[in-house]
Design a protein around this nucleic acid. Sequence first.
DNA 1: CCTTGACCTGAAGTTAGGTTTAGAAATTAG
DNA 2: CTAATTTCTAAACCTAACTTCAGGTCAAGG
Lengths: 150, 150
Amino acid sequence: MAISEGLSIGALADRTGLAVSAIRYYETQGLIRPWRNAGGQRRFQRSDLRRLSFVMIAQQFGFTLPEIRAELDRLPGGRTPTRSDWARISRSFRTRLDEKIGALEKLRDNLDGCIGCGCLSLPACALYNPVDKAAAGGQGPRYLMGDTPE
Amino acid sequence: MAISEGLSIGALADRTGLAVSAIRYYETQGLIRPWRNAGGQRRFQRSDLRRLSFVMIAQQFGFTLPEIRAELDRLPGGRTPTRSDWARISRSFRTRLDEKIGALEKLRDNLDGCIGCGCLSLPACALYNPVDKAAAGGQGPRYLMGDTPE
DNA sequence: CCTTGACCTGAAGTTAGGTTTAGAAATTAG
DNA sequence: CTAATTTCTAAACCTAACTTCAGGTCAAGG
C-alpha cells in the first residue's frame, strides 16, 4: 500500500471503535465524505478520525446527527482543517454545551422544591418553563417541551 | 358527574399537555395504572397528574421510560403518595441528575484542550474516558461509550 | 331520542440511529 | 495463483417512543 492512499473503512473503525456500518451510515448523513479508490472502496483522510471523534463526543452530549453535521459544515471545505479551525468549532460547540448544562442545572435546582409541592401539575410551576421561553409567544400556559399542547 | 369519579384521559391530556395516545402508551409501559369505569373508559386519580409531570421532566433529563418506571415504582402501592414520598423520589432522582451533570461538565472542561490537539483520535485522550471508567476492566484502550470496540 | 364528540382496541406507520443479511467484487496473505 | 479477508450495495430489520388509522362504543347536550 503506497503512502497516502488513505485509510480503509476497517482501519477507521478499528481506530475509533465505531462499527463499519455506522461509518457508512454517517457518510449517508453527510458527516464524512470519503473518496473512492480504483476498486470502488472508500478511502479516508487522517482528519476523518478527528471528525468521527467529534461526532462520538457530540452524541454523548445529546446532539442529533443533523446538529452535528451543522457544526462540522463550518469546517473549511477545500483543505484539511487546522488546529485553529477545530478550536473555532470547539468554541461554538462549547457555547451550546453551556446552554444545555445551564438548562439542566436550572431544572435540577427547581426539582426539590417543586416535586414535593402541589404545583407540579400546574403550568405555573417553574419546571414548566425550563429553558425560559416564558413570555415569548404571548400569554397562556407554556408546556414542558416549550410548545402549546395539542 | 359525581365527585371523585376520577379524571378522564382527555382531562389529563389537557392538564399535562401530553397527547391522549401518549398517556395510553404510558399505561402499556406501566407508568400509570388507571382503573376503568362501567363503560370501560380510563379514570385517573389526581395524583396521576404528578406522576405524568414527573415522567415529562425525567424525559427531559434523558431518562428512558424503564428508568423512570423504576423510580416511580418506589412510590407506595396501596395509597396516594404523600409529599414526603415525592421528596424521597426527588432526592434519589437528584443524585442521578448530579451524576449526569457532572459527567457533562467534565467532558466540557476537557473539550477545549482536546479538540484542538492531536489526541482527539487516540484512546489516551481524556475525552475517551468521560465517566471515568478508566482502570476498571483492565488495561488497553477504553472507547467512547465505555465499552470495548467490536 | 338523537347527534356529536370523546373514548375504546389492535395494528400499522413514523423517526432516529443504526445493524444485519445476501450476494458479488476487491484486496491481502501465503 | 489461490484462499481468506474486506469491502461493496441495497434492502430488510431493530429499539424507543410515540402517532395514526379503522371500525366501533360511550357519554353529554338539546
